[in-house]
Nucleic acid binder design. Sequence first.
DNA 1: TATCGCTATATAGTTAACTTTATAGCGATT
DNA 2: AATCGCTATAAAGTTAACTATATAGCGATA
Lengths: 259, 259
Amino acid sequence: MADSGMNLEAQLILNLDQKMFANPRRMALLAAIAEAGSVSQGAKLAGISYKAAWDAVKDMNQRAEEPLLSLAVGGKGGGGAELTDMGERLLKLYRLLSDIQQRAVVALQDRSVPLESLLGAISQFSVQSSARNQYLGRVDQLMPADSGDMLVSVVLESGLKISASITRSSCERLQLALQREVMALIKAPAVILDSSTDQEAGPNCYSAEVISIYDQDLVLRLPTGDMLYARISAQPPEKGQTVVVRIDPAQVMLAAITP
Amino acid sequence: MADSGMNLEAQLILNLDQKMFANPRRMALLAAIAEAGSVSQGAKLAGISYKAAWDAVKDMNQRAEEPLLSLAVGGKGGGGAELTDMGERLLKLYRLLSDIQQRAVVALQDRSVPLESLLGAISQFSVQSSARNQYLGRVDQLMPADSGDMLVSVVLESGLKISASITRSSCERLQLALQREVMALIKAPAVILDSSTDQEAGPNCYSAEVISIYDQDLVLRLPTGDMLYARISAQPPEKGQTVVVRIDPAQVMLAAITP
DNA sequence: TATCGCTATATAGTTAACTTTATAGCGATT
DNA sequence: AATCGCTATAAAGTTAACTATATAGCGATA
């Protein structure tokens, strides 16, 4: 279940009131019926017997709060079947969920992904941000600042502390509390090289070693071992040099998973 | 699958080489065996017959590339069973995937969630950011800027255009291309009220109507109907007034789902 | 060396979801 | 009014995954 050569895939089953309601076969059938225009032709398309198809359709139509298929008996062509809006929506929902699940399976199979952290795991396969600097940590301190915002201190596994200035309403929206797992996001251009002093002072002020310079991208290493990506502003430093960097807490974005 | 009163839950089945490998019952059994220290006691705990448990364990141990349980026969206590590292990891992976799936199910049941957009759907239940302003749109234009960064123009459904300045490497990492679905994230403090002029000029410069003022939070409405959250800096405007706002493209973060 | 609780394995019955096959009934179209 | 292809329903056989029950074998421990 962990290495590359294996063919692991996820199947989604939706239970309604503790009983199976949707599974891959049923959803494929639903799609086939929608395409063919009748249960009998859809069953053929899906490669199952008419009886099984009809039983499935009957069960779904009865148990869903609204039918998924509207069935016409007799008349033109002998009758037919059509997806209702509800049916269409269920199909979309199911496909979306399957897609999400398959992404998760593929991403989390990698042995290097930590499975302890929900946030860490989810961020591997879901929304990726353009921020070069992404640090997983926990809320360490929550302080009201003068501006009316909250100053949130995040401590990483490595011990590095990063402060973020967040509006109170955002704090509430993310349900930030001590020990909550959060990710601090910092765009590279928000990392300021501070040549005026070589003293660390104030929040988010660190001394860092220059690891590499390429084009205008600067890679730094903090004493804690964490890497920091910055952009070169005025005079470029040299490789191996130690510089002082500063990050405005207002430029730090926090991300979390609401429980 | 759509309204509140229903009891919809997701079940995860993992297929290995087209055949069922892990399902909720098997994983519960694995956990029970780990807790009890033997297959027979674990089966009792999980409420299934010893035969079924043993068949499941045998199948999993044989088909996984490494056994999940190490079984000892005879000796102290007659033998016993223990989770291997691989078994432990599978269990964690499974729990994480189930958790993610359940979150997705709960979030996407809401009728108001658009099921057309993968990014829109995922962002509903996964990582939430502290940025108050979040706009779903598509990449409209990709232009190299003087700084060496890329200026990415995002157009929303409403027609609103937002520009973001992103490093080239981030562009590549997110695989940004024309028409790619992205989300623009802007912290409220990054929205600057520009009193010097009432002319819209340059990128990310909009005239906006003041909808509400509470404490230091400002809610604005753009002509396109989109809402914009800002922080009050110097002199607070009045409700109903029209103001000009400006957002530095470097302060705009983009998020996407890599395909 | 006998005991113990476990792994390891077999046999037979049960269940749920299928399968094939068959047939009744419907109602616009011809 | 006859036709047509569908929905609607039933009966009987198949399969996979269980159930319960039984038994052989193991090896540290007492």
